[in-house]
Computed example of a mutant assay.
Amino acid sequence: MTDSYYAGVYWPARLEFAEECARRSATFFRLLSQCDEIYARWFEQGDSVEEALQREFMPDYATFLRFFQQQENQLGKDGFSLGAWTGHTEDGRGGMVRLTCGDASGAYPNCCVLYLPWPEVEPKSARVMTTPVLVNVLRAMVLAWEPLFGVVATHEFRQAMRPARDPRGFAGWLTYLSRARGEVPPLPPPVRTEPVEDKGTLMILAPERLSASNPEHLLLGRRVQEALDAKGLLRPVLS
């Protein structure tokens, strides 16, 4: 079975108008494009692949401001949503972004999620699924969105770390915590940490991809998670 990885960052209710969300979006896509060439081109989503491939866009401030001023991308009284993809039509190639920002009510949790390529399907994508590249991807997300929590993992790994309805964060292959959450304690080897400017701490649990099918990976994840839970660092983002 192919593991499907994603990178996601999450932050609480935070009122931001279209202009601020457009600025953050442009920053994110600019930084993401520097991580790997597969993130150089972006397309709006459409009702069909053929339609979507006709909707390439320039990921700059003016474009995002136009998107967020359109009713179809607005959520209630405040908040915005957007979906974009890299135009790779085969399953497991390229990537897709799902974004919700600007919501102040908590009704539409703010997040930015990037679905990552499958290296088993596309060998050239293996270069993306490496620690150095994904550290830069998660850094791009943090610098653009200033979240409380971020992670690179699979849904299967998340489910192994927490019960399905547990809203707390979890320890993934890569894990980010804002400094607003508190100080990260010493963690067991081979975990290493590095700062993301003055925003927070990025934890790299292992140099290789963590999989829910590997008992040693699960054990490492649980040890790290227990250390973070003991300090209350993984409490729900909306709390």
Rank of each mutant, 00 (worst) to 15 (best):
Gly94Phe: 01
Cys111Gly: 11
Tyr108Asn: 14
Asn73Trp: 00
Ala107Pro: 04
Glu72Trp: 03
Phe80Asn: 07
Lys77Pro: 07
Gln74Pro: 02
Asp91Phe: 10
Cys111Gln: 15
Leu99His: 08
Leu75Glu: 02
Asp103Ile: 00
Thr100His: 09
Gly76Gln: 07
Asp78Gly: 15
Gln71Phe: 07
Ala107Gln: 10
Asp103Val: 01
Leu114Thr: 01
Thr89Trp: 07
Thr86Val: 11
Ala107Tyr: 08
Pro109Phe: 07
Asp103Tyr: 01
Val113Arg: 03
Val113Asn: 01
Asp91Asn: 12
Gln74Val: 03
Gly92Leu: 00
Tyr108Trp: 15
Gly79Thr: 05
Arg93Leu: 12
Met96Cys: 11
Ala107Glu: 12
Met96Pro: 01
Gly95Gln: 03
Leu99Asp: 06
Asp78Asn: 14
Gly102Ile: 03
Asn73Ile: 02
Glu72Thr: 14
Leu114Arg: 02
Met96Asp: 02
Cys111Met: 13
Gly79Lys: 00
Gly92Arg: 01
Leu75Ile: 02
Thr86Trp: 10
Arg98Phe: 14
Glu72Pro: 07
Glu72Asp: 15
Gly79Leu: 00
Gln70Pro: 06
His88Lys: 13
Thr86Ile: 09
Leu82Val: 01
Gly87Met: 05
Arg93Tyr: 10
Gly79Trp: 00
Gly95Pro: 08
Cys112Phe: 10
Phe80Val: 09
Cys112Trp: 11
Gly83Pro: 06
Ala107His: 12
Ala104Glu: 10
Gln70Val: 09
Gly94Thr: 02
Gly76Asp: 08
Lys77Val: 13
Gly87His: 07
Arg98Tyr: 12
Gly106Val: 08
His88Arg: 10
Gly94Gln: 04
